[in-house]
Amino acid sequence: MSDDSSQMNSYVAKGEAFDRDTNYIEDRILADPDSQWPVEPGRYRLIAARACPWANRTIIVRRLLGLEDVISIGMPGPTHDARSWTFDLDPGGVDPVLGIERLQQAFFARFPDYPRGITVPAMVDIASGAVVTNDFPQITEDFSSQWKQYHRAGAPDLWPEESRDEMEKVMRLIYTEINNGVYRCGFAGSQEAYEAAFDRLFTALDTIEERLSHSRYLMGGSITEADVRLFTTLVRFDPVYFGHFKCNRQTLRDFENLWGYARDLYQTPGFGDTVDFTQIKQHYYIVHVDVNPTQVVPKGPDLSGWLSPHGREKLGGSPFGEGTAPGPVRAGEEVPEEHTAAAWL
């Protein structure tokens, strides 16, 4: 089962624990001119809905590394029907580059009988209109490694070699227990499955809370891919996961270090300026009809705290290490101010 897929009408299997379908299209875009999918500026389009945490990762990394000029982006709306994500935010409901109304068309252009969920993020070959890959963890890793020659000057090193082994261990914990852990709670089909998932989630959050008590970022004094992967869950925690997914032992604001850390990242260029709180709430509360059958979207919570001082500077470090912050958000890719934390000030 895939949460952000075409399977809109059924996420919860009664009596069962949630089991994510992790079978993705594993093709890679490589810095090898002889590969099936070689790195080429302008050849591929990233399809990434702002509402989806897995897609949000790719939007952040693309911006941090300065890949906007070489990888274009298409953004479906926050909701989808039983078939796939749709481009309802674009004029005429059509992606202006690919010329399609729904992401499903790109998957079918590659695999006419594609049997799995139509997920974002997805990299699409513009000329053929065919999906190349929807393997979300590999996509961001390859943005760092395979597209290196096109990184902006001052781009951060999100995969530092000296801490890679430790970082991959941390990211496994984050994925299995936190990124996927909130879904395990929300889509639990029995009381027993829910309570087990709840305990696993908060055990992991407590572990990360302690780690962040003495380290500004997960791997030390500057941001890495691990921080990107944790942030997209944390930024959705109070608006969605606390209530909608019943992850309600405490809010994110009740964690001293996680809350300070999350605000530190939100206020860092490349993170908060990719977050659309309105789309996030619309997606979860409207699409997950078996969890929220009324499809009523809550007005709260108050988001103004995301812009309050975080005090994490006392731990030292610099978000971009020896690099620099990305420049202003590319024209046309801005999050509407009324969809941001600033709207609550």
Rank of each mutant, 00 (worst) to 15 (best):
T274L: 05
R62P: 13
D34F: 04
R45L: 15
W85G: 01
N292W: 04
Q149M: 09
E168M: 10
I73C: 12
A130D: 01
V97Q: 15
P76F: 03
R152W: 00
E313V: 02
G317V: 11
H214G: 14
Q250C: 13
R200A: 15
Q279T: 06
H214T: 14
S10H: 10
R28C: 05
R20A: 15
G311A: 07
G272N: 01
E333D: 14
E256P: 10
T176L: 13
F202H: 15
V240C: 13
A226D: 13
F277A: 06
L30W: 02
S308N: 08
Q105N: 05
V228H: 02
S215H: 14
L89Q: 10
P298W: 06
F136I: 06
F108T: 09
A325T: 11
N179F: 02
L265T: 09
A127S: 13
K246F: 13
M171S: 01
P91G: 05
M8L: 06
D273L: 01
H339N: 15
A341L: 01
R152E: 02
D88E: 10
V335A: 06
R62G: 12
W54R: 06
A127K: 12
T79G: 09
T133E: 07
D290A: 11
P96A: 06
A55H: 11
L67T: 14
I126K: 07
E333F: 11
G316D: 09
E210G: 09
W147K: 00
R200T: 15
S213L: 10
D302M: 07
R28T: 08
F108I: 03
Y175I: 00
D290F: 10
E192A: 11
T176M: 09
S145M: 08
R164P: 00
P328T: 02
I208A: 04
G300K: 08
Q250K: 14
T268P: 09
L265F: 06
P269F: 03
P38F: 12
L212F: 02
G93N: 09
G42M: 11
G42C: 10
Y285S: 08
I139T: 00
E162R: 08
G272P: 04
S163H: 01
G305M: 01
E338Y: 05
L46V: 13
G270H: 04
L64F: 15
L64S: 15
A127V: 05
F277Y: 15
Y285M: 10
G117R: 03
M123C: 03
G220D: 07
I174K: 00
A13K: 08
T79E: 14
R172L: 10
N9S: 06
Y217S: 06
R200G: 11
Y11R: 14
